[in-house]
Amino acid sequence: MNKREAIFPAGRQALYEINQYSAAIRSGDLLFVSGQVGSREDGSAEPDFGRQVQLAFDNLKAVLAEAGCSLDDVIDVTSFHTDPQAQFDILNAIRLKEFGEPPYPNWTAVGVNWLAGFDFEIKVIARIPSA
């Protein structure tokens, strides 16, 4: 059995230590990425929703890159939204820009009523490319 290996993007370890979780766990050729939010450098939520979504994707890409992955390696996405109906158009435009051409990863979107001050969170599973 493979032992899990924690992955942390440079400069963000303190955030994960404070909250006691890993940014991602590598297990075999799979990477399980914790939910990423649109936090600014100080950890606070970006108030503009479109910018918050973009920052969440930027944070996600930093975690993926630390494990040698990119958005092209993502196979499963789960996202959390505080107001899915009102947020869909903004999110969808950014999602399509970030994931590029089909085939797209599968995606489950969940409406929630609390995200610790954020309005969007994204978590993924990616396959780590072989060396």
Rank of each mutant, 00 (worst) to 15 (best):
M1F: 08
N2E: 14
R4P: 14
E5H: 11
I7L: 06
I7F: 05
F8D: 13
F8R: 13
F8H: 15
P9N: 13
A10H: 14
G11N: 12
Q13P: 03
Q13T: 12
A14M: 14
L15S: 14
Y16S: 12
E17I: 01
E17Y: 03
Q20V: 13
Y21M: 05
S22N: 15
S22Y: 13
S22Q: 13
S22E: 15
A23T: 08
A23V: 06
A24P: 09
A24M: 09
R26F: 03
S27Q: 11
V33A: 01
S34L: 08
S34K: 07
S34I: 07
Q36N: 05
G38D: 07
S39A: 12
S44I: 04
A45S: 13
A45E: 09
P47E: 02
P47Q: 01
G50A: 04
R51H: 03
Q52G: 06
Q52D: 04
Q52K: 00
Q52R: 05
V53I: 04
Q54H: 01
L55P: 03
F57P: 04
K61H: 00
A62C: 13
A62N: 14
A62P: 11
V63D: 11
V63H: 07
V63Y: 08
L64E: 06
E66Y: 02
A67H: 05
G68K: 11
S70Q: 07
L71T: 13
L71F: 10
D72R: 13
V74G: 02
V77N: 04
V77I: 15
T78V: 13
F80L: 15
F80M: 10
H81A: 01
D83R: 09
A86G: 12
F88V: 00
F88G: 01
L91A: 01
L96F: 04
K97G: 00
E98F: 00
G100L: 05
P102H: 04
P103K: 02
Y104V: 01
P105M: 03
P105I: 05
W107K: 01
V110H: 15
V110Q: 14
G111M: 01
G111D: 12
V112H: 07
V112F: 06
N113F: 08
N113P: 00
W114H: 12
W114T: 03
W114L: 05
G117W: 10
F118W: 05
D119I: 00
D119C: 10
E121A: 14
E121L: 07
E121H: 02
E121S: 12
I122A: 08
K123A: 15
I125Y: 02
I125K: 02
A126Y: 05
A126H: 08
R127S: 10
R127Q: 12
